[in-house]
């Protein structure tokens, strides 16, 4: 089927497909990614157990570190870039994030309001 892939304007690559990179360059990329990922993981474990920082900030810090971890994975292992050869991948990621946000966010919101038309049990008791 290779003879028919006339890709119009802006040749783009599937995740994992790479061109014009020497083996050394690619290994370097993976090593940097691995180091960053390990660093972020270690920091998360450290933060979770430490009393060096203000306690209520710990969950926020963990969320930030988790998002950074995702970013590292996307860039170094899944090879998402901002280049023109990556438009489809970035769009797919954006669409996926949007849907996950809508479904998860919507679900949390809906499930939190399920009892909106019902007073809590103790109030029912009190009225009687």
């Amino acid at each position: 089927m290779s003879d028919q892939t006339h890709i119009p304007a802006g040749h783009d690559l599937a995740p994992g497909e790479e061109e014009q990179h020497s083996v050394g360059e690619r290994i370097l990329g993976y090593v940097v990614g691995l180091v960053l990922a390990l660093l972020l993981t270690a920091t998360s474990f450290f933060i979770a157990g430490t009393d060096l920082v203000w306690q209520p900030s710990i969950p926020v810090a963990l969320i930030v570190l988790a998002i950074a971890q995702m970013g590292v994975h996307l860039v170094f292992f899944l090879h998402i870039t901002t280049g023109p050869d990556n438009t489809n991948n970035v769009l797919a990621l954006a669409f996926g994030l949007l849907i996950v946000f809508l479904v998860v966010g919507g679900t949390v919101w809906i499930m939190a309001h399920l009892n909106a038309n019902m007073p809590p049990m103790d109030q029912i008791m009190m009225r009687q």
């Binding site: 949007l98 849907i99 809508l102 919507g106 919101w109 809906i110 309001h113 909106a116 038309n117």
Partner: peptide, 21 residues
């Protein structure tokens, strides 16, 4: 395509999620 993911609660309005939702 996008808005179709933002309307699903209308299948269970009567479930009791309240006026805001």
């Amino acid at each position: 395509c996008v808005i179709s993911f933002m309307v699903w609660l209308h299948h269970f309005f009567t479930m009791g999620a309240g006026p805001d939702v």
